[in-house]
């Protein structure tokens, strides 16, 4: 329903204070004058015509949105609901229509399966450690890219390479480098004298997790550093000038000035990466397959669903993962609103 034109001016000033309104920056537009009231003519034009114009625009908005919404309902909402539905049945992949309700049986077996909990722990370890390293490395690369030195363009181009390489390809490239017999990594470490015998990077229970994390770090750090670079580049240069003139050490400037200022962007990037890491599939599947030492929740769910044909049980695992991701998203969005306001103040 359109707003009464008379009330619009009263609302405007409030919406304009981005910093004062938590969340004013993310969902609502930063521009304030979006309602289609032709400002100067509003007073002179008859009230009814501007109302129908607004109505007309709202009607076309829904018309414009309809195709996208229909497609998303078909390919996202419907399959998701069916997955949740299947998780309460004993459906089988070979005949998905012949199912029977089994209540919470699938969830009960899931909770009792140590292999599932192993995959939950694996996923959490993977997510926390890889994102922590990616953040630290991403920050270092972003700071390097932000410095005005010759060769900057070269570094940025180099950093984009891992990002552009498909995950499957990067996993295979690393699998070859990490090969226990002929891999270049074992050869390099041996010749440097850092190890005395070749390591089985992808077979050893502990080392395989290390390898999976290392490959993900290589692939995902560029994304992190580009997001952080974008945040660094909008910081006011005068602060750094002032700090330099006052002779403050660069390390101090980083921890006292830079880090607090880019904190909001840093948190957003970290959250994005964590959500991404919680659903990890490709890199682990290609490097170590369904091996229990590294299997993530996604890998466990797909193995049950496709390899063992158990749609009901696999769907329960998938629904569980969905709930975890949804929970993290909700927590983050509530807590993210504060950040958006803080970002508004900080800049």
């Amino acid at each position: 329903m359109p707003r009464e034109p008379a009330t619009v001016p009263a609302v405007r000033p409030a919406a304009g204070l981005v910093g004062a309104q938590p969340g004013g920056g993310d969902a609502a537009p930063r521009r304030t004058g979006l309602p289609p009231t032709p400002g100067p003519t509003a007073a002179s034009a008859p009230r009814r015509s501007s109302l129908t114009l607004a109505q007309q625009r709202i009607r076309s908005a829904w018309l414009f949105l309809a195709p996208m919404l229909i497609v998303l309902l078909l390919v996202a909402a419907w399959p998701l609901l069916r997955t949740v539905f299947f998780s309460f049945t004993d459906a089988n992949l070979s005949d998905m229509s012949g199912w029977q309700f089994v209540g919470l049986d699938n969830y009960i077996s899931l909770v009792e399966d140590p292999v599932w909990w192993r995959s939950v722990v694996n996923t959490l370890i993977f997510a926390v450690i890889s994102v922590a390293i990616e953040t630290a490395l991403g920050l270092i690369i972003a700071l390097t890219l932000d410095a005005h030195i010759p060769g900057r363009g070269l570094v940025r181009a180099a950093v984009l390479i891992p990002w552009a390489i498909p995950t499957v390809v990067s996993a295979r490239m690393w699998a070859w480098m990490l090969n226990d017999l002929y891999g270049v990594i074992n050869a390099a470490l041996l010749s440097l004298g850092l190890i005395s015998k070749p390591y089985a990077w992808l077979a050893d229970p502990f080392l395989s997790m290390v390898s999976v994390i290392a490959v993900d770090v290589w692939k995902a750090t560029p994304f992190m550093s580009l997001l952080l670079l974008a945040a660094l580049q909008v910081l006011p240069r005068e602060i750094y000038e002032a700090a330099r003139v006052d002779g403050v050490s660069p390390v101090k400037v980083f921890f006292r000035v830079t880090l607090p200022l880019i904190r909001p962007a840093l948190l957003v990037a970290v959250i994005f990466r964590i959500l991404d890491a919680l659903r990890v599939f490709d890199v682990i599947y290609v490097l170590t397959g369904n091996n229990q030492n590294t299997a993530s929740m996604s890998i466990y769910a797909r193995q049950q669903l496709v390899d063992f044909q158990d749609v009901g049980y696999g769907s329960a695992a998938a629904t569980f993962l969905f709930l975890i991701v949804a929970l993290v998203t909700i927590v983050v969005i509530t807590f993210g609103r504060v950040n958006v306001a803080a970002a508004g103040d900080g800049r």
Binding site: P79, L80, R82, A301, A318, A326
Partner: peptide, 11 residues
């Protein structure tokens, strides 16, 4: 933000 696996059986 959907994990792809969450829509796999429905899809």
């Amino acid at each position: 933000m959907f994990p792809q696996i969450a829509v796999l059986s429905g899809m």
